[in-house]
Design a protein around this nucleic acid. Sequence first.
DNA 1: CTGTTAGCGCCTTCAA
DNA 2: TTGAAGGCGCTAACAG
Lengths: 322, 322
Amino acid sequence: MAALAKVSPMSVSRALRNQEGVSQETRELVLAAARTLGYRPNEIARSLRPGQKTGMIGLVVTNLANPFYSRLALGVESIAAAHGMRVLLTNTNEDEERERDIVRDLAARQVDGMIVVPAGFGHGHLELGIPVVLAARPPYGIEADCVLVDDFGGAREATAQLLAQGHRRIGFLGNPPAVYTGAERFRGFCAALQEAGVDLDERHVRRAQQDAAAAERATLDLLDLDEPPTAVFAANNRNTIGVLRAIRTTGRQLAVGGFDDFELADMLGVPLTIVAYDADELGRHAARLLLDHLTATPDTPPPAARRTIIPTSVIEYGATPR
Amino acid sequence: MAALAKVSPMSVSRALRNQEGVSQETRELVLAAARTLGYRPNEIARSLRPGQKTGMIGLVVTNLANPFYSRLALGVESIAAAHGMRVLLTNTNEDEERERDIVRDLAARQVDGMIVVPAGFGHGHLELGIPVVLAARPPYGIEADCVLVDDFGGAREATAQLLAQGHRRIGFLGNPPAVYTGAERFRGFCAALQEAGVDLDERHVRRAQQDAAAAERATLDLLDLDEPPTAVFAANNRNTIGVLRAIRTTGRQLAVGGFDDFELADMLGVPLTIVAYDADELGRHAARLLLDHLTATPDTPPPAARRTIIPTSVIEYGATPR
DNA sequence: CTGTTAGCGCCTTCAA
DNA sequence: TTGAAGGCGCTAACAG
């Protein structure tokens, strides 16, 4: 490259970065050569210099197949791209072991920072000397920014709505308690019951379904009880889908509450009480928090660990659309 | 690091890569030091050496908000991860200019190869000296592997199904013809009409909707015609959703065919003729094709440009589920 | 305005 | 078995 332009590598470097201190003539020489070669400076070599960043951020999610996480990724990507940064996308499948490996690998690849949906509760492996922002789940044992959904509040409000409709036997379908959102949403569910003076019936609680098929089976289970619930609250979109399928299969009456909005919720002809929130915004916000750290300078020190709660709203979808 | 272990950088390098020619003693010294420091070799510096790869592949899609592309990303990530590679995820918003920039940037970041859903038809900018696999759309003016959906065949078969149901006035809703899939699916639609001896009525064709809202308006438009279609074929999931909303809004009778399956298609209480295919597999296959190139050696030369067609199937969802 | 030197972290090659 | 030298592509700092 420098050879083609017949100048030193330094002149190439300067010209290509639009630095001053290069004659018009040299600059054009370089630009012409670059054009004919399709030459672009090696970003990786560039970032090798001390103090340089790679412009890459790692994104670690637990399950890309879940629309929630693809929206999150979308939000992160949009903010990153707007700041000239790229996103390294990885998937843990909710496997802590895998998460450890991935996180170390990303650090070894010199990402400037990471956004992580952590799979477990020990977060020591996230202390890597680079900024980390947690998404959807809070930090344990480390200091880090995080962006959460109002899991507790949303579940409580939707459950309260079901109670207000007169339901007293309400089933719960959700993630294992080991998943933060599952635990919080169950707490919210319980809180609403308690506030209404309704006792929780443990037989109506199913907390192990990770996919729609399992949720469908669990719902059928509930419907088979002697005193089946008249309503159920599903703590996430997988479970909501399962409930809806069970209703269709059996033709049984069952009021449905659910966490996570989904596209055709208004078109199912089934009344639905849905906890909605902006998943894109969750990703965008996480990215912004991370960028705060990346752009921090001695004068503008990185802020202390922040916790943002993305608000939820409860939507009532009627049996008849709109 | 080398200091802590009190050995030379070379011994560190060797020990950490499990190379032979290191004494047990030295090896343990190094491993211990690495553990206490949480040290991992800088992958980026490593890849700077001549002939080394970065282990990164670029993924360039047009619209991450569309579930089709997030499934594609999921498929790519799964194969990449299984081979120890990472995915750099980017979004072009169907903007050719942006695609040019992104593609050059990825190359400058030294990705080993890229999987691209190209926005336009001039693909010269994809010749960057690194392997490129196109997804969902074929190459123009360059040689490259690609993985396509059977757009033509799927649209034809679904349309034929509508015709077999007795429909003669069938509307078409789709992408602009400038998008390959839009053009192909329209071709398939026309082919089916022709085979049935039905003339295409241009007034029933709307090819500019990029989102569900626009598709809904277009459908309302069609329904307002003097001789409205009795069925419509929507060439992608955005348009199908729009049609369904229009049906709900107006309560009008309208048979629906659509390209792209979606989760609750069976639960809408509306008969639906859907062209389905495996979007994950499209991503996985693209990744495999790319890996073929990346693992190619002088003895196993990279295969010539290949074109894989992902098959489609037509599913009839009834008005009553299951 | 331009070029030389040096070094980022790593590893191949060669020498001890 | 170990280490020193040199260079991957780039650029800050320092000549010229």
